[in-house]
Amino acid sequence: MYPAEFRYTKTHEWAKVEGDLARVGITNYAQEHLGDIVFVELPEVGRQVKQGEAFGVVESVKAVSDCYAPVSGEVVEVNGVLADKPETLNQDPHGEGWMVVIRMSDPAELGNLMDVAAYEKHCEEEAH
């Protein structure tokens, strides 16, 4: 279910390292928990974000939820598809539903994130 090459946050974001870039999204657990996603707010390209800082907002029918940056750096790309098709986040959260690409300023921060085994355990604990 959860890709082994991703790194995960406790707040249910994922990061996929591509060289000095990190592609970022929310996890399947997050989208299931939120339900039908109807609105996504993303940062401007060029914005600097810090690890743990809110970089965007995802809204379902009932809930408004911040998304937190898994790594620090500059936002170099945002997924424009989500503006018109926010439901992509429900349909393919780990793929087409990616949200931003961040050029990492401190790749050592990846060490603060969970690997897939730790994340799956984290989800199990939260579900109870």
């Binding site: 339900g35 039908d36 379902s60 029918v61």
Partner: peptide, 9 residues
């Protein structure tokens, strides 16, 4: 129950 399948469906 808030939903059984999805609110929108």
């Amino acid at each position: 129950p808030v939903q059984f399948r999805s609110i929108i469906e």
